[in-house]
């Protein structure tokens, strides 16, 4: 028990780039992103899958990085909030959060943003109910969710305008 288990060497695909690094076999993806790769945009609010703050995309789907083993994400593309903006341009979801004041303390924001990006990849015209259902796994204590729902709708609207306009 006292002998520290040795780290494993593996390649993860994070935000479009392969990175080879060493981590503990029992490290969560949350720990590896934050502590090994210093991608601290992904947050933790409960460590037990009860708040949604640590959400990232794995294989394009939102997962709770606090309950995902990093070793179980080898060969699967991982997108954290740092990978959402394209070059120096904010993603429409980020822009809408900014424009409408949907981020207050900003701590739940990265989780909301990656989940909202995932939703809008499936449909850019979600109803309010669809937005609320898709993001129901994310707690926010600041906003009352109102501006978050509005921001996701606005982002979808802007994405539609770009695609069809």
């Amino acid at each position: 028990m006292s002998a520290a288990p040795s780290k494993m060497l593996a390649t993860l695909n994070v935000n479009g780039r392969d990175v080879t690094l060493a981590f503990l076999p029992h490290a969560t993806l949350l720990e590896v992103l934050r502590e090994e790769l210093r991608l601290t945009g992904t947050k933790h609010g409960c460590e037990l899958g009860q708040c949604g703050a640590c959400t990232v995309l794995v294989d394009g789907a939102p997962v709770l990085s606090c309950l995902t083993l990093a070793a179980d994400t080898i060969d699967r593309p991982i997108t954290s909030v740092e990978g959402i903006a394209v070059a120096d341009a904010l993603h429409p979801v980020q822009r809408a959060f900014l424009d409408l004041g949907a981020a207050q303390c900003g701590y739940c924001t990265p989780g909301f943003i990656v989940a909202a990006v995932h939703l809008l990849e499936r449909t850019t015209s979600p109803s309010e109910t669809e937005i609320r259902e898709a993001l129901a796994g994310h707690l926010c204590r600041c906003t009352g969710y109102t501006k978050i729902v509005e921001a996701v709708a606005l982002a979808g609207q802007r994405m539609r305008a770009t695609t069809h306009g």
């Binding site: 997962v63 309950l67 898709a134 796994g137």
Partner: peptide
């Protein structure tokens, strides 16, 4: 649970 929990 939540959408994330149902997806995982």
């Amino acid at each position: 649970g939540t959408p994330e929990i149902r997806s995982m």
